[in-house]
Structures are given as C-alpha cells and as structure tokens.
C-alpha cells in the first residue's frame, strides 16, 4: 500500500534514529507481556509494603511519612516507565520534557505550600 509522504515513517538510515539521550524514542514490543506482569507485581509489592509499614507502625511518625512517600514515588515511576511507555513516539519523545517540568512545578507547589504554612503552625 502506497503511503502519503506525510504518513511515511521518519526513521531513515542516513539520519539514524531521531532524538538523543532521554528523548530518543523507544517502542515496547514483546512476545510475552513480561514487563506488564513485572510492573503489576512491583506495584502490588510497593503498595502492600506501605500499608504494612503504617499498620504495624514500623518507625516513628516522621521517618514513616518519608518512607511511604518514597514508596509512592517509586510506584509512580513503575506506572510511568513500564505501563505508560514514556518514550514511545514517532519522532523525538518530546513529551518527556513537559512531563518533568510538570513534576517539578507540582512538587514545588505542594512543598512550598507546606513550607510557608509551617510558619503559622510552628511545625507540620
């Protein structure tokens, strides 16, 4: 089937793959859904760990908060990296840059809100 010029695949041998570093596109193609199963097991393990940590009060309050926040960030990493196929794109995977800018703004907004209110509360 002949394709329109605009519908052609953009990889070619002379130019090589588009993009570089973390915006180099990469497609997940597997014969068996290994990465999905690994992602599911990882996400269940991370969730149950944070639940068990809280139910058994493994640490005192502050380290416990930090521990379950780290587990949540790991869980988000599993979802973005394994399930959302972050770097799938025809050309360079430009979505990566706004996404991390968004993480930066979101984290900054939440952390700065908590920080500025500490002056009123005298502690969190």
């Amino acid at each position: 089937m002949a394709k329109e010029p605009s519908e052609q695949i953009i990889w070619d041998e002379e130019r090589g793959e588009p993009g570089f570093g973390f915006i180099r596109p990469h497609f997940h193609q597997e014969i068996f859904p290994t990465s999905q199963i690994v992602g599911y097991v990882l996400s269940l393990a991370l969730t149950l760990t944070s639940f068990l940590l809280v139910i058994h009060r493994t640490f005192s309050a502050s380290p416990l908060l930090v521990a379950i926040l780290i587990l949540a960030v790991g869980q988000a990493g599993v979802q973005v990296g394994i399930f959302m196929h972050l770097r799938e794109s025809r050309g360079p995977a430009w979505q990566v840059i706004p996404l991390f800018l968004g993480f930066f703004i979101a984290g900054g907004m939440i952390a700065m809100s908590i920080w500025i209110m500490m002056f009123k509360w005298g502690g969190y």
Partner: peptide, 12 residues
C-alpha cells in the same frame, strides 16, 4: 528509501 526501524505500532 525510508526504512521503518523499529516497526512503528498502528496507533503511531
């Protein structure tokens, strides 16, 4: 000649 490398899925 334009070579699809790797094969691009249908949605792309």
């Amino acid at each position: 000649k334009v070579i699809p490398k790797p094969p691009v899925p249908l949605e792309f």
